[in-house]
Write a protein that binds this DNA or RNA. Sequence first.
DNA 1: TAGATACTTGACTATTTTAGTCGGGTTTAT
DNA 2: ATAAACCCGACTAAAATAGTCAAGTATCTA
Lengths: 141, 141
Amino acid sequence: MKLTSKGRYAVMALVDLAKFNNINPVSLRDISLRQGISLDYLEQIFSKLRKKEIVQSVRGNQGGYVLNKKAKEIKLTNIFDAVDEKVKTVQCKKESKKSCNGKSTKCLTHNLWDELENHINDFFEKKSLEDLVQDNTERRI
Amino acid sequence: MKLTSKGRYAVMALVDLAKFNNINPVSLRDISLRQGISLDYLEQIFSKLRKKEIVQSVRGNQGGYVLNKKAKEIKLTNIFDAVDEKVKTVQCKKESKKSCNGKSTKCLTHNLWDELENHINDFFEKKSLEDLVQDNTERRI
DNA sequence: TAGATACTTGACTATTTTAGTCGGGTTTAT
DNA sequence: ATAAACCCGACTAAAATAGTCAAGTATCTA
């Protein structure tokens, strides 16, 4: 059970972006340098973030990215969802509530994994980008 | 962020074992059939569970496994720990609290991932095997 | 005591996922 | 014009996962 780099990087990059998101767009190159994340990889990640309207791009020289919503309105859920970082505890599909592992009844632990998924997702739904930026600057002082 | 089969199977198998753990040891063959888990794979898993003293083995004909503690005293944490299902949110080592990704300061999101890890581990520490068995039988009635 | 049942151990392997890289674009400020 | 930046799809090496397989050893029962 581990978080992937993609999800981790997405959050790191967005916190960085939120911090430097004053007047000018922030270039991926800057984020790459500050956070130590490969530029090519960042481009993949931001492409997804843009498609989900979490950021906006500004093309051309002096371009970059800006947040597309207020930091308060961007939750971890949104970020993870955008980059396909899903919480998956179990194989069985959500829709077919009845059958797990091909059997006609739910597996013995089905409810447990559901509960765990909810527990984790709750955490992600409560945390906003703003929380993270604040938490970060507070602790630096 | 997903749970591995090893962890999932370990819990499923132990719930099964706890349910049928009356007088006689339960054979892996039975668990394999009931839960649809490969026998060879189960053997690997139970080998680890035995080394961590969660189960006891009874060799020979009519042998099998029995719980080594009361179901109430076996927490999810213990099970996951035994089969190396760890919650890992971040690369940086716990010990070197100071440096993430080779830099001298913590990464922007370090505290977040710590918090997440704790959140998940709390869940695992609270759930016992007994809870799972009860939850399961209750819902069947 | 033979045979069956079941645990024990370690090595091996196919598949999938992850974490990128690479090469070629297009857009726009200066 | 040109450099800085975004844009996009294909490719790939490495790691992790989810097993399989083979060759045991122990113990019960007939």
